[in-house]
Design a protein around this nucleic acid. Structure first.
Length: 474
DNA sequence: AAAAAAT
C-alpha cells in the first residue's frame, strides 16, 4: 500500500488543509478503510480499537458530502452520552465551518429553547443524544426526510436497554435510502446481525477485531481490601505522578464520597456521573480537560468515546461489569499510539474478574504491589488453590521471575496486606454496602420513576425490539 | 453488584 493521504482517500482540499492545521496528516487505518466507502455512499459497520480515530472516520466523509448551499438537514450523528455528543459536535463544527456547514447540537441537559431557536437557521448536520432528538422531533421542529446519512456512534451501547426505543424511533423517521454508519470498539454478534438486517450490503470494517484494546496500553492490577482502595489509589496516582487520572466507580452513590476523599488527601478531584447537575457536569469535564482538576471520579458515563489530552492513567476502583466496559474505560488512555496505563484496584474476591477480562480480551493484566510509596512487581496469584483466606500477596507465587530485592519487597507487601486484613475485622462485606467506602452518611439512591422504567427495560433485555420484530417475521 | 438517555 502506498503512502496514504486524506486527499488520496477523496477528502477535499479545504478539509485536508484544516486537518493539517491540527497536525493531522496521515489517515489512521479505520479512516483509510471507512472514508472511501463512506464517500461512495456505502453503509458501514466499523469496529476499531479505542482511540484510533473513528470520529473523523465518519465526520470527514459526512462533511465532505454535505452540500452547504442546500439549507436542509443532510446528516445526523447520534451518541450515547451528552459529553460524547458535545465532543463530537465540537469536532464537527471545527471542520464544518471551513466548508460553510452549519452544525447543530441537540443534546439533553442544555436549554431546549435555545436549540429550537438555532434550528431555525437550518443546520445541514445535527449531532445529538437520542432523547433530545426525539423530543424535538415530537415538537415537529425537526424533519428527517432530507437526511442522507445517519451515524450511530458507540452503536452497541446505543442499541442496549432503554436508549433503544429512541434510536429506533429516530431511525424509522429517516428515509429507507439513507446511508447508515455504525461504529464502536466493541461490536458483538447481536449488533452485527442487527446491522446486517438494517443495512444494505454493508462494508464490515474490522481493524484488529481480536484486539479491542489499544496496543499502547499497559494493564496492571493491585490487590487490597476494599477499605484500603482509596489509599492504594492515592499512592498509585502519586507514584505515577499522573497529571490527569480518571477513576471509575460502578455505583453513582459512591462517587461523591470518593471525590471528597481525593480532595481531602490533596488531589484536586471532580465528579462526573449522569445524575449530577448538568451544568456542573460540563464544567467538571472542562476543568479536567484544562488540567485544573487532576482526578476525575466518574461513572461509566465517562467510559465511552471521551478524548482527553494528556490522560495517561485510568483506574478501576471497582471492576467494570464486563470486558466490554473494561475496553471502553481503559480506552480513555493509550490513544492514537500514545502510551497509557490502566490500573484495576481489586479485592481478593475480585481477582477472578481480572482473569476473566484477561482471557476474554487476550491481553496481559499484570499484578503489582505497593511498597512504601513505590509500585513493585507482585507475586502472580494465578493459582487459586493456593489462596488462603484473604492473603493475596503470596511471595511464593512467582519467585523465579523476581529479583532478590523484589522478593523482599513483595514479602513486605504481603505483610502489609495481612496487616490491613487484621484491621479489616470491622464491617463484614456481606451487607448491601458492598463497597466498604460507603459510610453511614451514604446518600440513598433515588428510586423514583426512573427505576420503574429500568425495570421495564430489563424485561426487554437482550435484542432491541425492532430486531425482535424482524426476527419474528422470519 | 450498573449507567445512561427527556423534563
Amino acid at each position: 500500500m502506498t503512502n496514504m493521504t486524506f486527499a488520496g482517500l477523496g477528502i477535499g482540499e479545504q478539509l485536508v488543509t484544516k486537518l493539517g492545521d491540527y497536525g493531522i496528516v496521515e489517515p489512521s487505518p479505520v479512516q483509510a478503510e471507512c472514508i472511501p466507502a463512506a464517500l461512495a455512499g456505502k453503509d458501514i459497520l466499523a469496529q476499531s480499537q479505542t482511540g484510533t480515530g473513528k470520529t473523523l472516520a465518519y465526520l470527514l466523509p459526512l462533511l465532505q458530502t454535505i452540500q452547504p448551499e442546500q439549507k436542509t438537514l443532510q446528516g445526523l450523528v447520534m451518541a450515547p452520552t451528552q459529553e460524547l455528543a458535545m465532543q463530537i459536535h465540537r469536532e464537527a463544527e471545527k471542520y464544518g465551518e471551513s466548508l460553510g456547514i452549519h452544525v447543530q447540537a441537540l443534546i439533553g441537559g442544555a436549554s431546549t429553547k435555545r436549540q429550537l431557536e438555532r434550528l431555525k437557521v437550518h443546520p445541514q448536520l445535527v449531532v445529538g443524544t437520542p432523547g433530545r432528538i426525539r423530543e424535538i422531533l415530537a415538537l415537529k421542529k425537526l424533519k428527517l426526510h432530507t437526511v442522507k446519512t445517519v451515524v450511530v456512534d458507540e452503536v452497541d451501547q446505543m442499541f442496549q436497554l432503554g436508549g433503544t426505543a429512541d434510536v429506533e424511533h429516530i431511525l424509522r423517521g429517516t428515509l429507507r435510502e439513507r446511508q447508515l454508519l455504525f461504529l464502536s470498539a466493541t461490536i458483538n454478534p447481536e449488533i452485527r446481525s442487527l446491522a446486517n438486517r438494517e443495512m444494505k450490503d454493508p462494508l464490515e470494517v474490522g481493524i484488529d477485531p481480536d484486539q479491542r484494546t489499544s496496543k499502547s496500553l499497559e494493564h496492571l492490577y493491585f490487590i487490597c481490601d476494599e477499605r484500603d482502595k482509596i489509599d492504594t489509589l492515592r499512592r498509585i496516582i502519586r507514584h505515577y505522578n499522573s497529571a490527569r487520572t480518571i477513576v471509575f466507580i460502578n455505583n453513582t452513590a459512591d462517587i461523591a464520597e470518593v471525590e471528597a476523599k481525593m480532595n481531602f488527601v490533596g488531589l484536586s478531584a471532580g465528579a462526573l456521573y449522569g445524575d449530577a447537575d448538568k451544568t456542573v457536569r460540563s464544567v467538571v469535564l472542562r476543568r479536567f480537560r484544562e488540567g485544573k482538576i487532576h482526578v476525575l471520579v466518574a461513572s461509566d458515563v465517562a467510559a465511552r468515546g471521551l478524548d482527553i489530552e494528556d490522560l495517561s492513567l485510568v483506574v478501576n476502583l471497582d471492576p467494570p461489569i464486563d470486558s466490554e466496559h473494561y475496553v471502553h474505560r481503559v480506552g480513555r488512555t493509550g490513544r492514537m499510539g500514545r502510551a497509557g496505563l490502566a490500573v484495576s484496584i481489586i479485592t481478593p474476591k475480585e481477582q477472578f474478574i481480572i482473569r476473566k477480562f484477561s482471557r476474554e480480551l487476550g491481553i496481559e493484566i499484570l499484578p503489582r504491589s505497593l511498597y512504601g510509596g513505590r509500585v513493585i512487581e507482585a507475586g502472580d496469584e494465578t493459582s487459586t488453590e493456593r489462596r488462603s483466606g484473604n492473603r493475596v500477596f503470596n511471595g511464593n507465587g512467582n519467585r523465579e521471575r523476581n529479583s532478590g530485592e523484589d522478593k523482599k519487597q513483595a514479602a513486605n507487601g504481603n505483610k502489609d496486606a495481612r496487616i490491613s486484613e487484621r484491621q479489616g475485622q470491622g464491617p463484614k462485606e456481606t451487607t448491601k454496602s458492598n463497597t466498604g467506602r460507603t459510610s453511614s452518611s451514604k446518600p440513598s439512591m433515588p428510586t423514583s420513576a426512573r427505576n420503574k422504567d429500568s425495570d421495564k427495560d430489563r424485561k426487554n433485555k437482550g435484542a432491541p425490539k425492532w430486531l425482535k420484530e424482524k426476527r419474528n417475521k422470519e
